[in-house]
């Protein structure tokens, strides 16, 4: 479905990705692991069009994505839950969710999707008229994911959904990630919390200083001594 091949990205003069290659297949949850600054977020930002690769191939269903503006990429079926959530603080919860469905005009189906998101996150239902800036961190994360789902994506990019959340909430968010995947959405998951990520993912990649250094099934990675030492804290 999604394929990156030898993708190079730089911030000005500073290279951030140095030949990233990875693949996400229909229906999978794929984890992208790595330390701070390794290039995880940059990879997601490149896929969603916020950054443009200098070279390399980036394709969705064999159609090139590089250079396509972000608002077009959403229409092609990729939704991105960015690092730090980036919900619209001054908009209400409902307005945030409406913005998630911005590209769509099928009112009836959108109403159904809103129902589905609110069933997935009942807390958002309770706070539907509240201004989003007043939500707790966990609620904001739910809103960010719910907002992305409102685009009816085929591929969901999740950047650090567990960041800053209490352990109970982390469990809950990952449970939801699994649910979303079961309902047919492919997921590319970036996480610092490698144990959680590998528990939900089928496959994974490890990125270091802008390049993929390891890949395999989640079980293989979880058993890999280097992964255990560097990312699972053993």
């Amino acid at each position: 479905m999604l394929r990156l091949d030898d993708v190079h990205v730089a911030y000005g003069e500073i290279p951030a990705l140095k030949g990233v290659a990875l693949e996400v297949r229909e229906g999978e949850i794929v984890a992208l692991l790595g330390n701070n600054g390794a290039g995880k977020t940059t990879t997601l930002r490149t896929i969603s069009g916020l950054l443009v690769p200098m070279r390399g191939a980036l394709t969705l269903d064999n159609q090139p994505l590089a250079g396509v503006p972000p608002h077009e990429i959403v229409r092609r079926g990729i939704a991105h839950v960015p690092e730090g959530r980036r919900i619209f603080n001054r908009l209400t919860v409902r307005e945030n969710l409406t913005m998630g469905a911005y590209t769509r005009s099928d009112t009836v189906v959108i109403a159904g999707d809103l129902e589905r998101v609110l069933t997935l996150f009942p807390r958002l239902q309770e706070r539907i008229t509240q201004v989003a800036g007043t939500l707790s961190g966990g609620e904001q994360q739910m809103l960010a994911i719910g907002r992305a789902l409102m685009a009816r994506p085929r591929l969901l990019l999740l950047d650090e959904p567990s960041m800053g959340l209490a352990p109970v909430l982390v469990e809950q968010i990952f449970e939801t990630v699994r649910d979303i995947n079961r309902q047919g959405t492919t997921i590319l998951l970036v996480e610092q919390n490698a144990a959680m990520a590998l528990a939900v993912a089928q496959r994974g990649y490890v990125i270091e200083t802008g390049a993929i250094v390891l890949s395999g099934t989640a079980a293989e990675l979880a058993d890999n001594p280097e992964v255990r030492r560097a990312y699972l804290g053993e």
């Binding site: 069009g49 972000p70 608002h71 229409r75 960015p82 619209f88 001054r90 913005m99 998630g100 911005y102």
Partner: peptide, 15 residues
Amino acid sequence: RAVAEDQAAASLMGI
């Protein structure tokens, strides 16, 4: 209002 608050996030909504 969304663009006024966060242009990058707005573009991720397809705006």
